[in-house]
C-alpha cells in the first residue's frame, strides 16, 4: 500500500504552536520524534508495556506510543523538553541528578512526566503513592529506590522545604 497523504496540523507542545505535516496513521510519539524533532520522549516497547514514551496531554500522563497524532491536535501536549524553565531545571530534574536516580537514563523522561503529574495532583505523596503513581514506568537500572527518593526530595523542595538528600542516599550506609 502506498503511503497516505500527509495532513497539516498545529500541535501545541510545551506551550508553543508547532505546525507540521505528518502521516495521519502516525502515533504522537512518532510525530514528536520524527516530525517535530523533539527526541526527549523515548520509544521503548511501543506497545504500552514500559512507560518510556510518557507525555502529558491536557495535564494527564499518557503513553504517546498508543496515542494517535491526529487525536492530539488541539490539546496541550507537554514533553520532557518542557519541564525546565529556561536554564533552570525542574525540581524533579534537579533531584534526579542529585541522587543519581538516572543511570542509563532511557526511562527518565517518561518517569519525570509521570512524577510531575503525580506531584501536581498530590504535593505530599507517601512512598506507596509514589510507587502507585510510577507503576506504569519500567526502569531496568536503578531498582527504583533512588527514583522514589528523588521524587520525595523534589516534592519536599517544591513544598518550599529546605530539603537535602540524605548522606545515606548519596554514599550508602
Amino acid at each position: 500500500m502506498s503511503e497516505p497523504n500527509k495532513v497539516l496540523a498545529t500541535f501545541h507542545v510545551n506551550s508553543e504552536p508547532h505546525e507540521c505535516a505528518f502521516a495521519p496513521h502516525k502515533t504522537l510519539l512518532e510525530v514528536l520524534r520524527e516530525d517535530l524533532d523533539l527526541c526527549g520522549t523515548k520509544h521503548g516497547c511501543e506497545l504500552g508495556e514500559c512507560g518510556a514514551c510518557t507525555v502529558q496531554i491536557d495535564g494527564t500522563p499518557v503513553l504517546s506510543c498508543l496515542y494517535l497524532g491526529l487525536d492530539a491536535v488541539g490539546k496541550q501536549i507537554r514533553t520532557v523538553e518542557g519541564l525546565a524553565n529556561g536554564p533552570t531545571l525542574h525540581p524533579l530534574q534537579d533531584a534526579f541528578a542529585d541522587l543519581g536516580a538516572a543511570q542509563c537514563g532511557y526511562c527518565t523522561p517518561g518517569i519525570l512526566m509521570a512524577a510531575e503529574s503525580l506531584l501536581q495532583a498530590n504535593p505530599s505523596p507517601s512512598r506507596d503513592e509514589i510507587k502507585q503513581g510510577l507503576a506504569g514506568n519500567l526502569c531496568r537500572c536503578t531498582g527504583y529506590l533512588k527514583i522514589f527518593e528523588a521524587v520525595e526530595l523534589a516534592a519536599a523542595r517544591m513544598r518550599g522545604e529546605d530539603a537535602e538528600p540524605s548522606k545515606e542516599s548519596i554514599y550508602g550506609s
Binding site: 504500552g48 512507560g51 510518557t54 494527564t60 500522563p61 499518557v62 503513553l63 498508543l66 496515542y67 509521570a114 502507585q132 503513581g133 507503576a135 506504569g136 514506568n137
Partner: peptide, 9 residues
C-alpha cells in the same frame, strides 16, 4: 487493570 498510564487512556 494494567498501569495508571494505561488506565488514563
Amino acid at each position: 487493570i494494567s498501569t495508571p498510564l494505561l488506565r488514563n487512556m
